[in-house]
């Protein structure tokens, strides 16, 4: 009986903690948007240079690894689809299978997971260590709202750069798939890519991009809210960084599933 009560107590505390986390993230989102839109009117203008720096860190610096990963995933999809569809004599369907799965699903998913591990964790670590060393307090007493200085630029940069990276990842994946599949289908790479283009419609691209927009919000909000809640010095920062990555990836996958379910019904 005592064990059950303790378990219920833990469950209750964990649920309340999760709700508080969601509430905190919502407040951060609201404040970031507020500073982005009307910050200049209350002496807290959003600095374009800060947004540009974040865009470089989140987007441009991640481009090589995103391209490499996208290309590899495309190659892998080509190998798998050729192998499985040839069993039914349906190799010709490889082009449509790769094109749809990459643009609707894998481009956005792989890019989001990569950016969550790379930039979501960096946001949590940066804000967490600033919190521990009183840098957040210092910003506040200087008259710089920490949300305006740290969250708003990252949010805007993520919302712009994640969809952009998704486009690059998808393109690289299609090229990767083309390089493997075109010889197997006895066509040129150019012809494979032209066929891909003819099979895709704007809805496919829109599905991937709209997902990446939601993923961008998730990665940023989980990263910054985890960073702001850091307690307990360097160890706390380490825990927060891990937590930010795990939470972001879990949410990305769950939201992706829900999204796919409703969009493709």
């Amino acid at each position: 009986m005592k064990g059950a009560s303790a378990a219920l107590d833990r469950l209750g505390r964990a649920s309340l903690g999760s709700l508080a986390g969601v509430g905190h993230a919502a407040v951060l989102l609201f404040d970031a948007l507020r500073f982005g839109v009307v910050g200049w009117r209350i002496g807290q203008p959003l600095r374009p240079a800060a947004v540009a720096r974040q865009m470089r860190e989140i987007g441009v610096d991640a481009l090589p690894i995103v391209l490499l990963l996208g290309f590899t995933v495309g190659l892998m999809l080509g190998i798998q689809f050729i192998a499985s569809l040839s069993a039914f004599g349906a190799e010709s369907q490889v082009v449509v299978a790769v094109a749809k799965s990459v643009t609707r699903e894998f481009g956005a998913l792989i890019t989001a997971i990569l950016v969550a591990g790379r930039s979501g964790s960096a946001l949590a670590a940066r804000i967490g260590s600033m919190s521990v060393s009183q840098e957040i307090d210092a910003l506040a007493v200087i008259g710089i709202e920490p949300v305006r200085y740290l969250v708003a630029p990252a949010l805007i940069a993520m919302v712009v750069m994640l969809p952009a990276l998704t486009v690059f990842a998808s393109a690289a994946a299609l090229v990767g798939a083309a390089l493997y599949s075109a010889p197997a289908l006895d066509i040129t790479v150019g012809a494979y890519l032209l066929r891909t283009m003819s099979l895709l419609d704007p809805g496919d691209l829109w599905q991937g991009l709209s997902k990446s927009f939601v993923f961008a919000l998730l990665i940023t909000l989980i990263g910054v809210s985890t960073g702001f809640s850091v307690r307990g010095g360097a160890e706390g920062v380490g825990r927060a960084t891990t937590r930010a990555v795990v939470l972001a990836i879990c949410w990305i996958i769950v939201v992706d599933m829900v999204f796919s379910f409703f969009v493709n019904r």
């Binding site: 002496g43 940066r126 260590s129 600033m130 060393s133 009183q134 840098e135 307090d137 210092a138 910003l139 506040a140 007493v141 200087i142 008259g143 710089i144």
Partner: peptide, 30 residues
């Protein structure tokens, strides 16, 4: 806040900025 200054126990300098940039930060912002 623009009329007060605070020196924290550990300094609380922004580690991503140089010493000069730290000192210049309030001027750049305000």
């Amino acid at each position: 806040r623009r009329k007060i200054g605070v020196s924290f126990q550990g300094g609380a300098l922004l580690t991503s900025l140089s010493v000069g940039e730290n000192v210049a930060l309030p001027l750049r912002e305000h």
